[in-house]
Every structure is written in structure tokens, then in C-alpha cells.
Nucleic acid binder design. Sequence first.
DNA 1: GCCGTTTTCGGCCCGACTGTTTTCAGTCG
Length: 573
Amino acid sequence: MPIRNEAIADAFEEIADLLEIEEANPFRVRAYRNAARTIRGLGTELVEMVARDEDLTALPGIGEDLAAKVRDMLESGKMSALEKLHESVPASLESLLRLPGLGPKRVKTLYSRLQIENLSQLARAARDGSLSQLPGFGRKIEQRILETIAARRGSEKRWMRSAAAAAAEPLVDYLTEIPGVKRVIIAGSYRRGKETVGDLDVLVTAAKGEAIAQRLADYPETRNVVARGSTRATVVLRDGLQVDLRVVPEASFGAALHYFTGSKAHNIQVRRRGQQRGLKINEYGVFRNDRRIAGKTEKQVYRSVGLPWIPPELREGGVEIDAAAEGALPDLVEPGDLRGDLHVHSGDSDGRATIEEMVAGARDAGLRYMAITDHSRHLTVAHGLDAARVRKQCARIDRLNEGLRGFRVLKGIEVDILEDGTLDLPNGVLAELDVVVGAVHSHLGLSRRKQTDRILRAMDHPAFTMLAHPTGRLLGKREPCDLDMERVVRHAAECGCFLELNSQPARLDLLDIHCRLARDAGVLVSINSDAHSVKDFRNLSLGIAQARRGWLTKRQVLNSRPLRELRKLLRRR
DNA sequence: GCCGTTTTCGGCCCGACTGTTTTCAGTCG
């Protein structure tokens, strides 16, 4: 079983945590974290890069030392540097760092003074009062630790973007109403279009901050106030979502938005560029010798360090700064660019609306065409269609199209890819369709080799148009299945088929790193809603955000093409 | 531990809030 990137990144993160507790050089700690981030963002497995004898030190943040540690782990299955650390620092201390208020210093104190290594020992010490006697601890921290353990928080929960949006919209409305408030904007990972967010970062511009922090504390949905000052406040909403508020004057809007949007790694890189130019960049502006020279807009901030404005979705502290400096930023796909939707269900299988109703919904969403792709017979729970029912549906679609102006319904199917890689309907009927969306709905646990071979075989079918929700992951519920995405992408390029980016809130599958693989291989991506009801077309905006994080331009998105052009691409198979 | 329009050593982003202090360390974003 080869070691995956995820495991190597985890090992580096763990080393960073333990080194922090050991009070190592903070920049050394950061080096491990940077490397972990680089590795998580790779579309390519390190094990394959090493097999191809590629130079790992070419990766940002990875030098000779860390490259050697990667090779060590790939060869031996474990990282000896981490094993060695465990001799002096127990691995379980990591779990203590996750508690609010406990950082490396206090965790070290816990371990060295009271030999506390885990949550239950910590709870015991908090209950008997010995915790508050330690230097740097007091009654308040002791109390908070007890509360946190009782509520079983501390395990970092992340929220689906759609759930965060449901909480964010009324909050923005509420804050906007406050007298003196000029602007309210959600920044942070939400603005960067991440598929999940850990909290809501709310930026407000106004002259005075205290009143606004107070109003946030008074917000009916606020459960408790964690911190409150004159320019920032943190509260937890009833549903458990944390909100970080930041208030700055209007003149600092751009600098604050930049700072509060992050990512942290991106900000560090931008501030470093500032430093090299003799500038200091903070959330209030860009300063030369204490004189503010920029800050009203983000564009000004970037210009001050010689860069064009960088879209938030790219700000992960990876290669976007270099790309910007070279004038090589992509012109990212935008919501208005989608012309159609190639994965839509109707009541003929498990949808909740008629084809006619879905047409109306798609038109309302600004689309000009869509493919009806109901499930195939194997998916009996979804009333999957057999060949006869597919043909009947096609005849109805033909009649429907005769009455439509300025909109076209394409005939399609979401056909199950069976365990052996064959498709769940006879070749004859598949050949009659405009769009064949292949999907894996069973045997998700196959080995990497078998799963990949299965999908490659399905792609070889001459009628196969695109692979639906490629990894099958469901956020918070199901991990991605074990799949060699590099082979899948290469094969898609060879066969001339496409990959779906499924826009359902819990799917958002292709992942962003796989979008980049597709882009590099010249494989077009179709951003589909997989709508089961009329309102589901709204989810396309989530897919767009994901595609933007994957650096996709309009030209790289299949369903941004006008119908005529799309038909040509579909026929090419 | 990484990295280079201050290059192979000496730097490495910056500020707010809390709680424990009595001038500030620790944590957080």
C-alpha cells in the first residue's frame, strides 16, 4: 500500500505541532507547515514523482531536508524524524492543542508540570483545581477547558459552504442595518470559495467599532461571546458556527479585506514582498515610514507590491503570486459564463419535477440548454430507466423541443458504471443519446487499481461523454474513493471525453486540485448542477467557485460553449 | 527548515484581545 500525499502532509503537520511544544525555532515550525500545505495542494502523488525520479526540491517550501524526509517515509512507510520526536513528546499532546486557549506553551506546561498527556487527564486536573495553580493558567482558562470538554468541542468542525451561506446572509442583513455601518462583507475562506469553512470572517467598515461588536453580541442568533474589543469580536452562533467580526475605517477597506480574506500563507507572501520594497502592510493599509500610501482598495494593495489584483479563489499561498508577477493569472470562469447544464434529473427517476418544470428552472437560471440525464436501471432505488423507458423519454423530449424557442433539451442518461466497468444499458440505446454521463454508485470501496481500471474501461465505451462526480466523496459523510486521478485525467484526454464538476453542496467533485490536472491535460470540465428539483440550479454557483479555485477559465469549461460548439465537441467521440 | 533585485548566511508578516500579570506572554486569525 503506497503512502499517499495526505499521510505525508499529516506527518509534517504533526512534526510542526510537536516542535512547537518543544519551543523550536518558529520559522522551522512554519517550514513544516508550508511543506504540508504544498503537498496537500499537489495533484500528483509524491510516490509517483519519486518513481519518475523528479526533483522534489523544485516544489515550493521543500528543500533537501524535507525532500529526504518524504523519501524516507515513502520507502519505510514511516517518518523516522517523527518517530524520534515521539520519544520526547507524546503524540497525544497534539489533541490538547486543538482546545481553545491552549497553545504550545501551555500544553508544554501541562506536560512538564503535571504530566498531562490527554483530554481525560486534563479534565481531571481542571476539576480538582490543580490546573489553575500552574503558571500562565488561571480560573478562567480552567473553566473554559471544562466547558469545552463537556461540550465535546475542540474537534474542528467545518461547515459546508451552503450551510455557512444560510447563516451568513441574515447576519449580513442584520449588520448592514446598524447606523454608521458602511459595508459588510464576508471574507475568509468563504470569500476564497472553499468548499467548507471553519468560521465566518465578517468585515465591517464604520467609524466606531464598539457599538457594532455590541450589536453582534445582541444578535438573536448569538449563543455566546468569546471575545469583544473595540475593533474585533468573536461570537458563537446557536448552531455552533463561529463568527469573527472585524471593524475598520472606510479608508482601510481594501487592506482589511485583503488581510481578512487570507489565506494566511498568501498574506505572508504579499507582506514579504512589501517588506522587500520597504513597505509595511497591515489591515489598515500599506505604509512607507508610517505614511499610508494605499489601503482603500485591494487593487491598491496589490499594486503597491507590483502585482495585479489576484482573485480570492487563487489566494492559497502557492504559485499564484509568481503567476501574478509574470502576468500569467488565468481569466477565471464566471457565473454568467455557463450556457447549459449537462446533468439534470426529472421525475422519471428520482427528480422531483417534470422535464417541463426543469426547463423553466434552467431558463430562469439563464441557461440555453440542458441535458436530461435520469438514472439507469441498475439504480432501482431511484427508479432507474431501462432502454424502453429511455426511448419513450427521448420521444417526449423531441416533442417538447418542437415547442421550445431559444432553449434546447438534450437527450441523456446518468448511466451506472458497473463493477466491471461496463455500462448499465445496451450499446444501441446509448448510441441514440446526446449525452452519456457515466457514474459510479456502487462498489465504492474497490482497490485503487480496480477502481481506476473500472473507470478507464467505462471511458473506452464509444458513447461515453463524461464521468460524473469522479471521486464520489460526500463532505462530512464519505471520503473520496481510492482513485488514480492522474490516470483518469490522462485517459480522458486520450478518449476525448470530459470530466464533471458536480455542484451539489456535499459533492463539489471534481476537487480543485483535480481541476488543475484536467486543465493541464487539456480535458474540458463540465460544471453541472445534478439538479433534482428546480431550485437546485442555484447550486451551479458553488460549482463555479470550485472551478475558479481550480484555475479554470471559461474556455476550459465544456458547458460555457454555445450549443452549436458543444454539439461538435460531443460528436468528436 | 527554506530561500535569494539585501543570495549561501541571516533573515523569515503583523496586530488585537484575554487573562494573568503589574508590564506582557500566549493565543488567535
